[in-house]
Design a protein around this nucleic acid. Sequence first.
DNA 1: CATGAATGAGTTTTCATTCAT
DNA 2: TATGAATGAAAACTCATTCAT
Lengths: 191, 191, 191, 191
Amino acid sequence: MPSRDPEITRKCILDAALKLFAERGFHGTNVPDVATEASVGAGSIYRHFADKIALVNVLYRDWKERFRDSILNPPPEEGMSFQAQFMEYWARLWRFYRTYPAALIFLDVHAHGDYLHEDSRMVAQEFERDLSRWIAAGQENNAIVQEEPSVLIAMVYGAFLGLVKLENANEKVSADSMSRSGDRAWALISP
Amino acid sequence: MPSRDPEITRKCILDAALKLFAERGFHGTNVPDVATEASVGAGSIYRHFADKIALVNVLYRDWKERFRDSILNPPPEEGMSFQAQFMEYWARLWRFYRTYPAALIFLDVHAHGDYLHEDSRMVAQEFERDLSRWIAAGQENNAIVQEEPSVLIAMVYGAFLGLVKLENANEKVSADSMSRSGDRAWALISP
Amino acid sequence: MPSRDPEITRKCILDAALKLFAERGFHGTNVPDVATEASVGAGSIYRHFADKIALVNVLYRDWKERFRDSILNPPPEEGMSFQAQFMEYWARLWRFYRTYPAALIFLDVHAHGDYLHEDSRMVAQEFERDLSRWIAAGQENNAIVQEEPSVLIAMVYGAFLGLVKLENANEKVSADSMSRSGDRAWALISP
Amino acid sequence: MPSRDPEITRKCILDAALKLFAERGFHGTNVPDVATEASVGAGSIYRHFADKIALVNVLYRDWKERFRDSILNPPPEEGMSFQAQFMEYWARLWRFYRTYPAALIFLDVHAHGDYLHEDSRMVAQEFERDLSRWIAAGQENNAIVQEEPSVLIAMVYGAFLGLVKLENANEKVSADSMSRSGDRAWALISP
DNA sequence: CATGAATGAGTTTTCATTCAT
DNA sequence: TATGAATGAAAACTCATTCAT
């Protein structure tokens, strides 16, 4: 009963679901637990989402879009070197994780669920296309190693996720390591 | 019921469970489906494993050990450069994935389930300790960049998993890209 | 919210409930749907009726009374033959159905629900008593076959309902068939 | 747990469902109650029927077929008068009701549920076609009144159902009334 | 009075586990 | 030992009813 404003209720449900889905996965999370976490009656979830699958799809789509926008916008200043642009992207990844840690885990864990609708996946594909274009530009300038862009993206993002999971599971990674990680990741794709 | 030999029944169950757990996760897989996939009666699973949690723990432990052994043994020849040793490790990772693709996905997906017993996780920790030792040796020889070993492991293994997921989701990564990937990954940790 | 006049709101609710209860039955109809059909807020229904059971009881009682009155009043002219009186009754049945088709279906479908209060059923019993009296009079005059009146009522009304359901389900029954049906029904009870 | 033979379990469920659906309708009956009536666990129902709708469809189809067969087979002897044949049909209706009272009520109550699949309804249509043919033959012989066969069927079956409901609701109809009812019904359709 | 978002008890359905064969 | 039908506790979902606005 957080409010009479349905938008606020909806937001509470989405936040609670994000947290629990990230921690326990889709099948490991049950609807009443989401309701409790959201301080909402179980039935209320079904006033806002047709079913559990609709909920996870809205969540996936919303956060994938927010993630993409956080990384890509605004575009790095013209005239920056590709390395500097990469560092900016890396910093944004990290900033996103610091701001919304659960969202990043959620997006990773649910990337391949067969409950995701086609259009939810589409957002991820658009994102990848934009990144591929940036890499191709870097390759034309000989600033990025000649390699399939999707392979480079997979390795860089994989390395990033590796760090995220390290921090998520264990204790915190030192700030120094963190700041050096961009250089390490750049080494991955520089010629 | 492929045989009267209980060991074979057990193996069939483990194989079926590995496949389904890798595809659908622990909570997304139900026991009767495992039984069907294993061509075994549902009750038979409980003759070999106390319950679903015991099954996933055996699976996790077994495969984590096999994975560790496949990567670490036999130790790379003395006298090889650290880069060459790294290339060997990278090749072994890849070879393991090619041989047991489901197992690698399974190990990743189930790495943080709260249904895993302490001792199942322990295997992973031992493995990490061994790798850290190798990295520390490399760092002493100035063959590997000065950085927290757990950070380097996380990034390298993350990059590897990124490639695995790319291949798993999309179409095959070209053999060329694959063979170049070791060099990219080495760049990640070379000084 | 068709008006500020509460009586009109109440009427809208009753009409909507009649329609939906007739189509889907009591348990198959839910209160929010009735509200939507009535263009009224769900809460408004509870301002006019204590609960769903009270609503169906008001509806049943009201329409059973209207039905009875439409059939029995005014009494057929003195001096008409019993056959002519029967034809008048038959015509009234048919006229009622043409005017309020949903009501007739509703009364049939809900005749035996255990949610009906005693007094709702009473109306039906009174009605039957009146009809029985008329039949008894006809039997005394040898204008109606000697048979338990309740049996004759059941057969005649059953035949009528059969026609109503035929028309309700399929396409329209021809006007000719309709007008002949009174003769057929009279054959059922004439000596 | 009535048996290890699944067919017996299935039969128990069907019998229990028939009884409760006939008494309370589809929406008024819940699955655990069916399970209890069948002396079976609630989950067992779902081993035999995909869901509640599948259950009611199987039930409807099965009983509609049994009903049709009970009435039509074996065909009345050649050479009997149409009136005698009608009396035989009427007797069979009555015999069916005496043997399976719940089934007849069930078929009537569920004749128009929107949860019935097309093919469940089909059985009813075939039945009607056969009866129409018989009536048409009678009309050619001037043994049955000239009238739309579907209208005659609706009235006769309606009259029969009226009697059935009378007996079902109130006390028993006398055996004499019962035996005379065939004559009354025949009057309905004789020229 | 009217509203409709919120609620939670109740219903449908699933599935890990048992046990008679 | 193997089986798979049966089970019932728990999950997903519905809906009659309430109540803040």
